[in-house]
Design a protein around this nucleic acid. Structure first.
Length: 141
DNA sequence: CAGATGACTCCCA
DNA sequence: CTGGGAGCCATCT
């Protein structure tokens, strides 16, 4: 598994990162994309989740939510299922359906895991398109 | 090979 | 707060 990741396809690398999210925590699509590294954007992560097949068991897709702290709408079955799964893991939602990142936000995988699997987390590329490029750094330590 | 398509995200009005 | 528009890029027609 470990060595395969080095040459793995983008989606597989995405799934590998998502698998690192512990129960009771959540991560955003953009955060996962940043960890996977260059060539991966939040959109790819979302698409990867959409393309997730039953055969890829063990990918806690429910722990990946959008940057607003809400569960993203989807074409398939409603977000109630995802929310229920998260609540079962101890994630709480406020009245408007938002989670508190300060409380359940994922810190990211240990640096050692990143090195072993050769992930090179990039700064959040969010601001690359327009104005400033101060590229706020993801706190992985 | 040329579009079309997203479980996204940011910025601005 | 809400909504629209542009950028994004691996995959799929």
């Amino acid at each position: 598994m470990t060595d395969d990741l080095i040459n793995a396809k983008l989606y597989d690398r995405i799934y590998a990162v998502v698998r690192q999210i512990p129960a009771g925590a959540v991560a955003t699509y953009g955060q996962v994309a940043a960890i996977v590294g260059p060539g991966c954007t939040a959109r790819q992560v979302g698409y990867a989740m959409s393309a997730l097949k039953p055969s890829e068991d063990g990918v806690p897709w429910q722990r990946v939510i959008n940057a607003k702290g809400e569960i993203s709408p989807r074409e398939g079955y409603g977000p109630e299922v995802q929310r229920a799964m998260l609540e079962h893991e101890g994630v709480t939602f406020d009245e408007s359906g938002h989670v508190d990142f300060a409380q359940v936000g994922w810190e990211g995988p240990p640096w050692q895991w990143l090195e072993e699997n050769q992930f090179y987390p990039a700064p959040l590329l969010s601001n690359r398109k327009k104005k400033n490029s101060d590229g706020e750094q993801l706190s992985l330590f």
